[in-house]
């Protein structure tokens, strides 16, 4: 299994990311006390949705071809600053809103969404949706889920 880059220079017009959850199960007794069984210490099922508004049809084709290339061999997708993650500021805060100094974050938002440090791998959670809007232009929506591959 290899990683295939998402097409570059196809800038999204919207992006939505959720870091996912930790695998656990909660049991709540009749008196309201909760017992949590933790099955792992790593997040799973992070989600990423990218929307591309009114892009050229030729760029929509690149996304469709990427979907096929990734799924033919059960590869994963990677994103870079010119492919899916455009527009993210990687600034790190060293102080909070009240000027209190705190340890500087070691990773920017790009690092988080790329899931490079978590070990999660992005895969398409469904086929891209292409909606034609005008001659030569389309809206494309892609959704991804980040999975923790078994060793």
């Amino acid at each position: 299994m290899a990683s295939i880059g998402f097409p570059i220079y196809v800038p999204p017009s919207s992006r939505s990311y959720s870091p996912g959850t930790f695998p656990q199960q909660t049991f709540e007794s009749q008196n309201g006390a909760k017992t949590v069984l933790r099955y792992g210490s790593k997040r799973v099922n992070a989600t990423l949705t990218l929307g591309f508004a009114n892009i050229e049809d030729a760029l929509a084709v690149l996304i469709l071809e990427n979907y096929e290339a990734v799924n033919e061999a059960w590869d994963s997708v990677t994103f870079g600053s010119t492919s899916g993650l455009q527009g993210i500021s990687d600034a790190k805060r060293g102080t909070d809103d009240y000027g209190v100094i705190r340890p500087e974050a070691t990773n920017g938002l790009t690092d988080h969404i790329q899931e490079a440090i978590s070990g999660l791998k992005w895969r398409y959670s469904g086929p891209p949706k292409v909606t034609s809007t005008f001659k030569g232009r389309s809206n494309v929506s892609c959704s991804f889920v980040a999975c923790l591959d078994s060793p």
Partner: peptide, 18 residues
């Protein structure tokens, strides 16, 4: 007009429409 503004842009970009 079709809006083609993408993430990272600072100004609205457009494509002609119907």
């Amino acid at each position: 007009v079709l809006e083609t503004t993408s993430l990272g842009d600072t100004d609205r970009t457009l494509e002609s429409g119907v």
